[in-house]
Design a protein around this nucleic acid. Structure first.
Lengths: 341, 341
DNA sequence: TTGTAAGCGTTATCAA
DNA sequence: TTGATAACGCTTACAA
């Protein structure tokens, strides 16, 4: 039952060549005569050879593995990003070893150790848990996506521009007040740029605005409750005034929209809503939500582009590691739908 | 710059033991004296040894890799299933090489070849593309999830019971007619059981029913359009009558609900809706949607349970491959929310 | 309890 | 254009 596998030795024996020649057939076929190439090709078929990359890895040191650590796949942003990362296989040929970290630093460290034990050639880190300084210390090419990135290369959405776009769009609908709801995020985090962009536009055009920086909770129920509270407060503080609300993401924008629909059977004239991400929920909501769209596919491709360059550099005889991490910024795309003018 | 890696040879030299003893320290530490264990432990620290699993794989043949092929990660069902599969790492220690197949059979075949080249020990296949007979021919343990599974082991939701639950729940709300919308799926597909369960309950209780088996399209826009058409038709054919609608999944149930909300500002009394999956959209919709919930975490764990048993069997000196594939059925859980009584 | 030596399936380095 | 031989890092008989 143990189908013993066909190896280069078998092919060599069968064809009368050496193992080296067989290896060359795969790695540098043009160094063989056409005739001999054909002989070997025939033998492969005759013997039903299946390549074994483990031997190759051991001998060459190249695994073609890239480790990916996502916080979870529950949130659409991460699953779609992973989707796009996986899709780069067609272009770059790297295989992906994927772990979901669930925000526990020590667990993620174990995952990284494990990845390193398999001689991965690089890592893409979406999880914000482990500081970039530590990631950099592993001496493996790393690209971070939408996370703190002082010591590692990264690709991020232009969050500042996203904030600007959101505030600008809301400003067009002559709202009496603009509001941005967000978590109280660190200035190190790329997402902080949204707040900055929003505030600066409001300042520049002298638009009254309010920042509500608070934790909206980790579950859907918590979200609903806290956003409900926020609406209560807004209606009390700004009764009858037109409110333009920039939510931190589409999921929360949708919660807000649902609450309003449940209360009023429609989106009242006194509300404008804009989300962030352009995730499916923004199209699947009661009425489609306007949003600042992240170009997930572009981000994934840029990340692999940067990573593959660094991995290629490392394979050279005299690699010149980057002095400075590369930071790439991808512009967001404003998507106007039915929750704004 | 090339930090040459520390190997067993280095440790052996440093400690005065042989490589074998070092290997034993890792694989069977109790065969060493405590004292010697300590010596080696100290050396590992002193030399800053990092394990290299590639050598181990080559020597032992065990990669601890499991290949996963999902159709995509865009649909929540797949991403959450992958999430749960990845989480089994903590329990079983297998690492996952993930590919997204996008329904192209030849692409998926290439992925499988690639996986095999890395000596994966088993595969979990969520994609319906490649026939189970072909999958079985690779002679690697395979578990399919919610797909045709004649020749491979599998884990599926009890779709029949799901259909029964849906029809039973709708029957309680004295609807005048029950309707099940679904694609015109093959009888080979596990999902076919839903139709069967639904029809049988309707027959048993003499409930008027209608089956609408039609392709709802591949994009959100198409879905909206076709479901809108279906509502038009239903309202024309059954004006004023109370309709209980069992949708094929939560995404489509949500589309239906949104259309009704847009038309009537609420869910009319004459409609009852139930979805399938218990995916996040069923809770995040305007009003929470009743649904037949799949136990994704249970399914993922059962799949790894079956797979790891088969992989373990294969490692034995005289493995006894399964005569018959194992098929495990997981009951769905009916979740009553606000779109039904 | 420990060691010797022969692999595992490739690639890399010389040499021819 | 081809081949011999030595790695690559670890495991696994078999011996001691």
């Amino acid at each position: 039952m143990k189908e013993k596998k066909v190896t280069f030795s078998d092919i060599a024996e069968y064809t009368g060549f050496s193992k080296t020649t067989i290896s060359r057939y795969f790695n540098n076929p043009d160094s063989l005569t056409l005739e001999n190439q054909q002989k070997i090709a025939d033998a492969l078929v005759a013997l039903d050879y299946k390549e074994n990359k483990v031997g190759r890895i051991l001998a060459s040191g190249r695994t073609e593995f890239v480790g990916v650590i996502v916080p979870n796949l529950y949130m659409h942003y991460y699953s779609e990003m992973l989707n796009q990362i996986l899709a780069t296989y067609e272009k770059y040929g790297y295989k992906f070893l994927v772990f979901a970290g669930n925000a526990k630093a020590d667990v993620e460290r174990r995952y990284i150790e494990e990845l390193l034990a398999y001689n991965i050639e690089g890592m893409i880190i979406l999880s914000p848990t482990i500081p970039s300084e530590e990631l950099a210390s592993y001496h493996v090419p790393v690209v971070g996506i939408e996370r703190e990135d002082r010591y590692i290369s990264s690709v991020n959405t232009d969050n500042y521009m996203g904030g600007v776009q959101a505030a600008s769009l809301l400003s067009k609908s002559d709202c009496d007040i603009l509001i941005h709801v967000n978590a109280d995020i660190s200035e190190e985090s790329p997402a902080y740029g949204r707040i900055k962009g929003f505030v600066e536009v409001c300042g520049e055009y002298h638009l009254p605005y309010e920042l509500i920086l608070t934790n909206l909770g980790d579950t859907f129920e918590e979200n609903t409750e806290r956003i409900s509270d926020i609406i209560d407060r807004l209606e009390e503080e700004h009764p009858g005034r037109k409110k333009g609300i920039f939510m931190p993401n589409d999921t929360h924008a949708n919660v807000l929209l649902n609450i309003l629909f449940q209360r009023y059977g429609k989106l009242p004239e006194t509300y404008q809503i804009i989300g962030f991400d352009n995730s499916p929920i923004s199209r699947e909501s009661v009425i489609p939500i306007s949003t600042v769209g992240q170009q997930i596919s572009v981000i994934a491709n840029e990340a692999m582009d940067i990573l593959s360059a660094q991995m290629a550099e490392r394979k050279k005889r005299r690699p010149e590691p980057l002095k400075e991490p590369v930071h790439k910024i991808i512009p967001p795309i404003l998507i106007r739908r039915r929750t704004t003018v």
